[in-house]
Amino acid sequence: MSGVELENVTVRLGDTDVLRDVTLSLRARTVAVVGENGSGKSTLARLLSGLAVAREGTVRVLGLDPARQVAELRRRVAVVFSNPDAQIVMPTVAEDVAFSLRTEKLSRQERTERVTAALGRFGLADLADRSSHDLSGGQKQLLALCGAFVRNPDLVVADEPTAYLDAPNARRVADHLLEDAAHRMVLVTHDLALARRCDVAVLVQDGAVTRVGAPDDVLAAYEASIRW
């Protein structure tokens, strides 16, 4: 099964190349992306999600070209962002999850069943009819995950999904992301303990991918590169 393949990819935002000549082949199931603020991690995540386009080079995500096969990409790739507020689009919890199934042709009953099952998995069953904006930050982020997972994606791209959460909630979200073996995962994170739990880590420095490999090695290189 193909994962993520980048070949000499350059992404330009405004008048700077935010990613420069990135070549990367990722086949591991869970991949952590680490690096300093402003190094280009989010841009990489957006590239894989089809939200940013490559100026040069070729991009393949699950064998798809994000620039040309957007509809298929959306069906198979789910994306989770860090700001829980900006990911909620419907007034109540259950409806927000159901929103993700909008484009799938399902009967009302099938849709309800899928939503109920997903809410149960993320411990949100009791909150189904609550106003989604009244949830706590951690609950909102679980809702965002729920909305992503209800579509049974093949790949989940998450950009700092635990950034706004306290330790127990961060732990809960991380467990959901990493322990479910049904999907692949690209996880942008500043949480190095979380990065260690992935199969492979990628280090991004100043718009370039400088290291790919076992998390322990990559993180050691990252820490060594930081000069105080």
């Binding site: 939200l51 959306r74 962002f81 990911q87 689009v89 929103f99 993700s100 909008r102 484009t103 909305g147």
Partner: peptide, 9 residues
């Protein structure tokens, strides 16, 4: 929000 709507189809 625009990004979130886009990635959700």
């Amino acid at each position: 929000l625009g990004d979130a709507l886009a990635v959700r189809g």
